[in-house]
């Protein structure tokens, strides 16, 4: 199981839980698992999220590995200028 930390307003959609656990070994499994286990998160996941894994930020690469000890933090999808 991977512990996923949610930002505050996202946590409000899952009964205030700031951390949730998901079975995932990579980014694709993580995003799919979040949407299935917590349908309230689906709209935001569809709009796009970034995921910080052990302090580095990833957006799309499904195969990005995630370990049970990884720090996984969901973030708003980042944009830049």
């Amino acid at each position: 199981m991977v512990t996923v930390r949610l930002w505050g307003s996202l946590a409000e959609l899952v009964d205030g839980k700031r951390e949730i656990e998901i079975t995932a070994t990579n980014l694709r499994e993580l995003l799919e698992g979040l949407g299935e286990a917590y349908p309230a998160l689906k709209p935001q996941i569809s709009r796009g999220v970034s995921v910080a894994i052990d302090g580095r930020i990833y957006n799309d690469t499904w195969a990005t590995p995630i370990n049970e000890t990884s720090e996984v933090v969901l973030l708003n999808r980042l944009v830049g200028g």
């Binding site: 930002w7 307003s9 935001q44």
Partner: peptide, 20 residues
């Protein structure tokens, strides 16, 4: 309005995001 935006602000508020 996206989910998470409270009712006591207008429809011009599209998102509310909280971190910390």
């Amino acid at each position: 309005k996206q989910e998470g935006v409270p009712a006591d602000v207008s429809d011009n508020v599209l998102t509310r995001t909280e971190y910390g």
